[in-house]
Design a protein around this nucleic acid. Sequence first.
DNA 1: CTATTTGCAAACCCTTTGCAAAAAT
DNA 2: ATTTTTGCAAAGGGTTTGCAAATAG
Lengths: 139, 139
Amino acid sequence: MHNFLNLLKEKELKATPQRIAILKELSQKRHPSMDDLYETIKHENPSISLATIYKNIGTLKEKGVVIEVNTSDGKMRYDIDSSPHIHIVCKNCHSIEDMDYNEYLFDYQEKLEKSRDIKIEKLEVIATVNSCKFCKNIE
Amino acid sequence: MHNFLNLLKEKELKATPQRIAILKELSQKRHPSMDDLYETIKHENPSISLATIYKNIGTLKEKGVVIEVNTSDGKMRYDIDSSPHIHIVCKNCHSIEDMDYNEYLFDYQEKLEKSRDIKIEKLEVIATVNSCKFCKNIE
DNA sequence: CTATTTGCAAACCCTTTGCAAAAAT
DNA sequence: ATTTTTGCAAAGGGTTTGCAAATAG
């Protein structure tokens, strides 16, 4: 809670209850969609609107606080963890698992940059699987 | 042209002029969006409809003829090249460059599969750059 | 007090769908 | 002749926008 206030101050954003609720939810839930956030936050803050979620996530993206993950299911997912990691997306149940970058990928990125003389802002790695431990448990 | 007919026969799809125009365009243009395809094909086939493009790309995706590339600019792009490769997306001019997979990535994928005991259907690697040779030339 | 943010509703844009007419095999 | 495909228009679904009222600093 305290951290959120500091974070927002750092980013020069006003600490509205809506904003704090969004950050709190982002830090608790794995990879929520806009709708996930909306539905959950509405419980404690019934007057919040979807547009507010959208606007705030937009702002937080700009400020580099959250990243957007595209699971190709038509809905974006949001992730407050900004350390380099890859995503393992399950085509079946749409869950997302994080996995840390390792030396391998750092190395790969570096080689890519050198061989092409480019600066890579972001290396997005998405592994798609047809089923995962989550949906296996369900079925 | 001939190749397209064989390809369609193989996939048990009827060889309509619209379908052939789409395949032709996909094999000529780098990574067109739905709209790119529509606008271009309309020149030679003015009666074609956007819905036909959508339906056909959908079918071609199912049949494994094209893949979908998500550049996070709100529009999907389509790619008839099915060999393993990664995409370098320019945030500035939205162009996409292909780059072949190398041993590095094959290796990485294999390690990932073994360490987690999963089967990766697709490993999508998207490198984002802030500017590229295409937009440098323009500016 | 000033600038930002909220919430609402409408607008937007890309994509999908239903269906009758047309075309492919 | 049968099945697929087309084109149209309407609907769908996620996202964005404009604006007045509310709120944070």
